[in-house]
Design a protein around this nucleic acid. Structure first.
Lengths: 249, 249
DNA sequence: GCTGCCATTAAGTCTATACAATATTCTGGA
DNA sequence: TCCAGAATATTGTATAGACTTAATGGCAGC
């Protein structure tokens, strides 16, 4: 339909088998709960070895489209609308992609000792950090106000990093591997200094995005982004398996 | 760390190999761009067949941790922060899970002919629909105001469905398979009737979530949810592969 | 130096087979 | 009837081998 490109390109046999079964499930011909033929049967219908159909069906299983059990067989999974893939990309990349001129402005850059940092809900103690306030602009208009802690324990290199021209998020992405992250999205009113810096009247609605990133058990960074509500949407496009489709902003 | 359960449970050989390589990548021992040994080498280090290491590394490839190319070999992928899995669950389930009393109130229920529906950006013509306005309450407090079109072309059964006690989203989830969906999240001010129904003063910030669902090329439903900004966050927790972790609201 | 060809290497696919693990079903006995 | 254990079906894992496909690196010729 609109720019969609499913698993059409399928050269290999197992890819074709997989696409075929997938089509039957998505079309509703094999509804949720339907038991699909055992591997031995598929192997005969397709005239191939069991390893090949196994690869196909196993892939559908990791996708979440089917559930497999020894002896009990394979059944089509119940559809779930529980998770959506949300593109929350690098701001710079996002702005540039839309054909706008990106500009970055560092407002504040200081060292914070442990006490200043509000602790996580888990009560972990976070060490000292480099604290940054910066503004991301699109075509000269302020779009995102970012406040970010980067923790020295996890990223000692940050101490010397030059963040006057490169946004901290971009720097981190290129330098620090991460193992886990959490986003929290809410709606807030722009208030006080933040409103002024974003060029908004007090009370204007903004998206508030708090992103926390871990590397193993160590907190790498906490970023709080206030995004002009009138100028930015978060868009997610996906299919039942939870895999992202093309998400053209 | 907090409720996290990585790929620790590894019984089979390929799972162990995979976890081992994954650990080296995440620990930074094998940084992005590093070329990992070819399958023939891994096969010797682990004393197993090539199919087995293939399965392990292929899994890492679908996860996005490595990139593979014929002849060029396998290299550790650059970390990308492009997509996050966002839990946008059934509202009822979400409220109940938090231990609050869920209440549902149907405000409006009418038939709309095609002309009333704002067309999609693609210019597709959407047929007539059943249009619903309803309120989701947690412990008696209004939390989400929902306006939803369900299109009769795609879901003729909806005509007769009883939606006075069951929210339309829940009904749909149980009755209609879908193949594609899109979410759009923005921040708005509560205004007029909506503000009143949510018990907010005019101008209070709200999350605005627009969800569109397709089945094949047909639009199944368009839902517009206005969520009290002070009472609800959208939370996403994930790892670099983009697979969702446990997301305890 | 540049171009085009070719050999090499590494991943991708597929087969045939074997055995393991496990849930269901069957069967026999109390 | 009901329970224990055996038979069985189905997926899971692993092996060895063969062939395919694609990118790289080097070599020859211009």
């Amino acid at each position: 339909m609109h720019g969609k490109a499913p698993s059409s390109r399928s050269d290999s046999l197992h890819a074709r088998i997989r696409a075929d079964i997938e089509a039957r499930i998505l079309s509703g011909k094999w509804p949720p709960g339907h038991r699909i033929p055992p591997e031995t049967a598929l192997m005969q219908t397709w005239g191939c070895s069991r390893m090949t159909v196994n690869k196909a069906v196993a892939a559908l299983a990791v996708e979440g489209l089917v559930e497999r059990n020894r002896r009990a067989g394979t059944v089509v999974a119940q559809p779930r609308m529980h998770a959506a893939i949300l593109r929350i990309p690098d701001i710079r990349a996002e702005i540039v992609q839309r054909g706008l001129r990106y500009e970055y402005r560092l407002l504040d850059d200081e060292r914070r000792s442990a006490c200043c940092v509000h602790l996580g809900a888990e009560g972990h103690h976070l060490g000292s950090s480099r604290f940054l306030r910066c503004l991301h602009l699109a075509d000269g208009r302020p779009l995102v106000l970012e406040e970010r802690h980067i923790f020295l324990d996890a990223v000692p290199e940050i101490e010397l990093a030059d963040l006057t021209s490169e946004p901290p998020g971009t720097w981190l992405l290129g330098h620090v591997p991460w193992t886990e992250a959490e986003h929290r999205i809410s709606a807030v009113s722009a208030e006080g200094v933040a409103a002024k810096e974003l060029g908004l009247t007090s009370g204007a609605p903004c998206l508030y995005l708090e992103r926390r990133t871990w590397r193993g058990t160590e907190t790498v960074t906490i970023a709080k982004q206030t995004i002009r509500g009138d100028a930015f949407d978060l868009v997610a496009r996906f299919d039942p398996s939870g895999r992202a489709l093309i998400s053209g902003a």
